[in-house]
């Protein structure tokens, strides 16, 4: 983990939705999955994950159920609801458009003006 970036405010929800969309996960699993899919480039404060999960559940984007983890511990698993899936698509589109716009803006050379 060489250069880790602080995540932008508001993007945590999007990352959680993405991580969970790849398969049901418990809280710690969400953390590992985000590390994995960002190739260790994003730093997430561990405790901050849970308020975000709670919020997403309350918004009906995730649903939670108790099950058993790989190491036979009781754990709460989160999965995407259909509204959550829709929201992920919208947010991802929005993010990609924004990222592309910012990238193109930053790529601009003086002679292009």
């Amino acid at each position: 983990m060489t250069s880790q970036a602080q995540i932008l405010p508001g993007t945590l929800d999007l990352l959680i939705l993405k991580a969970v969309s790849l398969g049901p996960l418990h809280g710690y699993g969400v953390l590992l999955r985000i590390e994995q899919i960002s190739h260790g480039a994003l730093l997430i404060e561990q405790g901050a994950l849970y308020p975000a999960l709670f919020r997403l559940v309350r918004q009906g984007l995730l649903k939670a159920s108790w099950g058993t983890s790989d190491n036979n511990r009781r754990a709460k698993f989160y999965e995407l609801t259909s509204t959550g899936r829709k929201r992920l698509r919208q947010e991802a589109d929005g993010w990609n458009r924004l990222a592309a716009a910012i990238a193109s803006a930053l790529d601009t050379q003086p002679e292009e003006i």
Partner: peptide, 11 residues
Amino acid sequence: DEELRAHVQNR
């Protein structure tokens, strides 16, 4: 509480 404890144990 249980969920947070499980997290710390997993870690």
